[in-house]
Design a protein around this nucleic acid. Sequence first.
DNA 1: TTCCGGCATTTCAATAGGTTAACGAGCCGC
DNA 2: GCGGCTCGTTAACCTATTGAAATGCCGGAA
Lengths: 249, 249
Amino acid sequence: MRSQSTTDGGLAQAVIRRFHALRPLSDEAVGALEQAILEGLFRAGPGEDLVAEGDPIDSVRIVLSGWLYRHKTLEDGRRQIVNFILPGETCDAHAYLLSTIDHSITTATPVTYAEIKRARFEKLMASERTLAEAFMCETLLNNAIQREWAINLGRRAALEKVAHLFCEIYERLRPVGLVDGNSCSFPVTQMDLADATGLSVVHLNRTIQELRATGLITLRERTLTIADLDALKSAALYSPNYLQLYRQV
Amino acid sequence: MRSQSTTDGGLAQAVIRRFHALRPLSDEAVGALEQAILEGLFRAGPGEDLVAEGDPIDSVRIVLSGWLYRHKTLEDGRRQIVNFILPGETCDAHAYLLSTIDHSITTATPVTYAEIKRARFEKLMASERTLAEAFMCETLLNNAIQREWAINLGRRAALEKVAHLFCEIYERLRPVGLVDGNSCSFPVTQMDLADATGLSVVHLNRTIQELRATGLITLRERTLTIADLDALKSAALYSPNYLQLYRQV
DNA sequence: TTCCGGCATTTCAATAGGTTAACGAGCCGC
DNA sequence: GCGGCTCGTTAACCTATTGAAATGCCGGAA
């Protein structure tokens, strides 16, 4: 199912815009990145493992369209989604330095991505300073998000967890132009959502009902609509600090 | 209380050994790092904030002795410790790229650390390739640990959580020579432990009693002793993959 | 059209973990 | 030596969340 693709579709533009928001890029950097992306386009269907825990890594992937998630599984099957990877985001900016990877990456939807081989990537980093900084910021941002997930999983109540996740995803989709008014695509099952928030499917479902009942959100046909973002944020005890990198957007 | 220090004490050696385990360092890199460390030694007492959420950052800190923790707090006071920082580890390898930091860093014990100013650090990175890679690995390892904490907080049961934390800390102290047989220093209060595992203090206490009762651990006078590491790991559903960087130790 | 599998939903009983409160030990300043 | 702190511990009670199981919906394959 995974296949090389030759279509472009201007998708690279959104990626570049987001990178630019992370860190100002020089014109040369933009050109070089764009070229590298267009040279290695691939597609994958939904439910495919791009990376499995324990794999060695030798390239960097940038997502042009579609959702993926990082996850880990315990021996007995309990699964935790530790993060989502959204369009414009990077899978493993420097992970080739590690011998093997500690988690799996699976597509939640059909995905288009660009793959840059390690050697090529390192050359890019060496020649384009602003690009190297942008990828560094990408990694740091990832880190910050991961920390916020820790407090989400450890200290927030069920309703707050789910509300917080909705707020975060919405804010992360914004800089790539994937929010439309107060709604955005939200193509994951409730089982995935449960595994991302550390809840059981049953309780996650109840929690979503509750969010619907209070009129905070609508979630239907894979589309999330947030009636009142401020109200949702307040219900989630959401603090925007950790996504500050996007401030320039 | 925070004060510049001029004592050396050979502490830098442990740091260097650990870095070397992360990534092989050239002799020049070792020398340069050692010098940078010795030029900026500081001390802090217990319970001091080295970094507060929202601060701008303009230096890198390497811990020579003592424990710290990263934490975030919700408006209503709920707190989550998102990670510990142990001797030999680095506070914020590249964080100066971000405008402000998303979490606080507080000392749990008296701490000795080296502070390297941004300009100095960047020069080091530019001139010593192996050192730059080592710091990169440090950041990636941090990331991996953070992901493991996500599954710990989201999917493990109380006993597993605490057991897992014990295993992880033990394994992280090992490469810096801070484990002595089957025990190591463990200088944090049960309240801290509760905030690290996402439990209430009361339940954390109950859980520790249980671990004691089953003979898996002893925790007395700030010292943790692990009777049977394999048994503890198995109780924790511990998988060592995510700390693989230390494999060479 | 029919069957099937994935997904959302609901119900109900069971429980892991939270909350509140109280007590004792050790330690510090006075 | 006396309060007043922090920290660990225990008890009793309570609830948020889990787990198992059944139902209905929908879209795809035959």
